[in-house]
Simulated scan of single mutants.
Amino acid sequence: MKKTLLIAFGLLLAALITNAQRYAVIDSKYILEKLPEYKESQTKLDKFSEQWQQEIDNKQAALDKMYKDYDAEQIMLPDDLKKKREDELFNKEKELRDLQKKRFGFEGDLFKKRQELIKPIQDKVYNAIQKLAVEKSFDFILDKSEGITVIFADPKLDRSEDVLKILGVK
């Protein structure tokens, strides 16, 4: 009876061990920074961002000058001209806000450029991670870079280098 119970317990323990979930940890930020095409795309994105910010700064400077001029002249202006200048200022301010939203707002030009330049690279990394998960039979792969907080990760679980190998980066 004891022997049968011991064998049953051993089989149950073996079943639990073989059924254990396998997981790995990767650092997607580290992986992306090792990819030359990501660096190039990030540089292009930064250039677009700088150009658009410069455009906005120029319009802001022109608007500030218009406000300064209006403040200096407002005392001498007749009411109809005053109203016209205030409307002009309001329209220019609205134009500037619309431009900021168009360039940097949700689903603005920067978002679209990021989708165009960075998303294909992220998809490539995701596919490599998926391939690693299938090849190594991982049930979970956690990303320790930004979104999910990993308090501790044993370095031997980090498979970022394996993903880079799949991507052909040394």
Rank of each mutant, 00 (worst) to 15 (best):
L63D: 01
L89W: 00
E116D: 10
E50W: 02
D162T: 04
Q53R: 14
L117D: 00
I166M: 05
E95T: 05
E37P: 04
D98H: 11
D154K: 12
Q122E: 15
D139M: 09
E107G: 06
G105F: 05
D123E: 11
D79Q: 15
K29P: 03
Q53P: 03
K83G: 00
L167G: 07
N91E: 12
K156E: 13
M76Y: 11
E86T: 09
K84C: 00
I118F: 03
L142R: 07
Y38E: 03
P155Y: 02
K2Y: 14
Q21W: 07
F90K: 15
A24D: 05
F90P: 05
M1D: 10
I17C: 10
K170P: 12
K59P: 01
L11A: 12
E33D: 14
I75W: 05
L6P: 00
I31Q: 11
T4E: 14
Q51A: 08
M66Q: 13
Q60G: 01
L142G: 06
M66C: 03
T4C: 00
K101Q: 14
P120I: 08
S49T: 15
K39E: 09
K124Q: 08
V150K: 02
K47P: 00
L157W: 09
F138N: 05
L77K: 11
I31H: 09
K3W: 01
E86H: 07
I148L: 13
I151E: 03
E37S: 14
K68V: 00
A8S: 12
Y70M: 02
K83S: 09
L77S: 09
D80V: 15
E50Q: 13
Q130D: 14
E40A: 12
D123Y: 01
L5Y: 07
K34M: 11
R85Y: 10
E95I: 01
P36M: 05
L96V: 03
T43S: 12
P155S: 08
S49A: 13
F111R: 03
E161V: 10
A133Y: 04
R85E: 10
E86C: 01
D87C: 02
A15G: 12
A62H: 08
K101E: 14
L35T: 10
N19M: 09
N91G: 00
Y30A: 12
T43P: 01
G108R: 07
L81G: 01
V150L: 14
